[in-house]
Computed example of a mutant assay.
Amino acid sequence: MKISIVGATGYTGAELLRILASHPAAEVLYITSESQPGTDINEVYPHLTRFYNKTLASLADLDKIAIESDVIFIGLPHGHAMEVGRKATAANPNIRIIDLGADYRFKNHDVYEQWYKVPHTHKEAQAVYGLTELNRSQVREAAIVGNPGCYTTASILALAPLVQHKLIDLTSIIVDAKSGVSGAGRSLSLGSHFTEVFESVKAYNVAGHRHTPEIEAVLGELAGEELVISFTPHLIPMPRGILSTCYARLKEGVSPEKVDEAYDSMYGSEYFIRLLGRGGYPATKNTRGTNFCDLGWHIDKRTGRVIAIAAIDNLVKGAAGQAIQNMNVMFKMEERTGLDNAPLYP
C-alpha cells in the first residue's frame, strides 16, 4: 500500500511513522508539514533515524500525493482536514482517507459546527466513524474514516456493552477521564510546560470538552435514543496514556452476571480488547506503546452503580494505532498487521 501522511510532525504523525515502519505491507510515500517543508523527518524526530530517509513535502503537491497514494492519513487540527479530503478525492476517486482529527467524526454536522466553531465544508462525504470494534463492517467499505478521539475511544469502549444491552439508566452516566500530556499535542503552551504539570493533576474544560458530543452520539446510536453525559477530563503528569473511569446506575434487577455477560458477548472475540473482568483494575502502563484497550468493571451494590474502567495508550489505540487498524480493515488485511506488539514495561 502506498501511504502518505498529511501533517506528519505532530505526535500522532510521529506515532504513525513509528508503527508503519514495521508494517509489512506499507510503503510510506509522502509526508507533509506546512511549518517545516524541506526538512528531513529525522531532524524533527531523531528516534526515526534509520527507519526513514524522507523530506517533508508541502500541501501544494496534494494532487500529486493523492494520485500516487492508496491511502492518506490526515493529522491536522480540526477545520483543515475537510479541504484536504475534498481535494484528494477529486484528484483520485479511489483514494482512502483516514482523518485523525474531528472533521469526519460527526454524522450531524450541526453538532460539529456548534462544538468546533468552524463550518463543515465537506458535508457530502460519506464518512464512517472508525471505532473499529463497533463499526468494522462499515469501515471495510468506507472511502473516508473519521478516526475517534482518545478520550472517546476509552470511554465508549468502557460503556458500550452497558448501553447496548440496556443495563443502565442512560441519564446517570458520568465519565471521569485522565490523559497524559501528549494528548495536548506538540505545540508549545503554558498548560503543558513541565513546571506546570509535574507533581500536579488538574481538571480542564469541565462541562465543555469537545469529546463530549462524540461520546454522546456513539452511545446514543447504540442505545437507540439521544442521551447526555457528564464528562470531566484531567491532565496527568505522564507522557502518554488514558484512564477513563465511567459511572452509571444499574437498572433494577440487573445482576453482576448480566454485566459480565454483556462485556463477554461484545468483546470476547476482540483481539485488541483485553477483558480483565469484574474486579479488574486496568492501568495505563500495561497498554503503553500498544493498540490494546484493557477493560475492567466493578459493581457497587451499596449505591446500585456499575463502574467501568478503560486504559489505553492515547497515541496508539487512541490515535495512530486505531487508524492503522482501520486501514488494515479497509484493505481487507489481517487486522493485527503491524500492531501485534507487546506493551513497553516497566
Rank of each mutant, 00 (worst) to 15 (best):
L29M: 12
L62C: 03
R288H: 12
G10N: 07
N42D: 00
M1Y: 04
A90V: 08
V206N: 10
A248Y: 03
I242Q: 02
G180V: 09
E68G: 02
Q322K: 11
E124L: 13
L243I: 15
R305A: 11
E214N: 10
G183W: 01
T89S: 10
A81C: 08
T287Q: 08
E270R: 04
A142W: 03
I236L: 12
L243Y: 05
E141P: 00
S22A: 10
L295K: 04
V254M: 06
I236K: 09
L167G: 04
D294W: 14
E34G: 15
S187A: 13
A91N: 08
H209C: 12
G268D: 07
S255E: 08
R240F: 10
Q322P: 02
D300T: 00
A60G: 14
D110W: 04
Y267V: 06
L16E: 03
Y151F: 15
Y267L: 06
I5F: 07
M266N: 02
E270G: 01
V329N: 00
T290C: 08
V44A: 04
V329E: 06
I312N: 02
T152S: 15
T245R: 15
R288P: 00
D176A: 12
Y267K: 03
P119E: 07
I65T: 05
V163S: 02
I95N: 03
E27R: 13
T171C: 10
A308M: 05
H298Q: 14
R274L: 13
P148E: 05
G85M: 06
T303Q: 09
E334L: 11
C246K: 09
Y112D: 00
R336S: 13
A21V: 00
P282V: 05
D300P: 01
N314Q: 12
V316F: 11
L16N: 02
G321K: 07
T290R: 02
N92T: 07
R278L: 14
V28T: 09
P93Q: 07
I229F: 03
I273F: 08
C246V: 07
S189Y: 14
I242M: 09
R186I: 12
T284C: 00
Y52N: 05
Y116V: 01
F292A: 11
F331A: 04
A14L: 13
M1I: 12
V254H: 00
L315V: 06
T132N: 12
A342E: 13
Y267Q: 04
H211P: 01
E261S: 14
I72R: 01
C150W: 11
A60M: 08
K301L: 08
V84W: 08
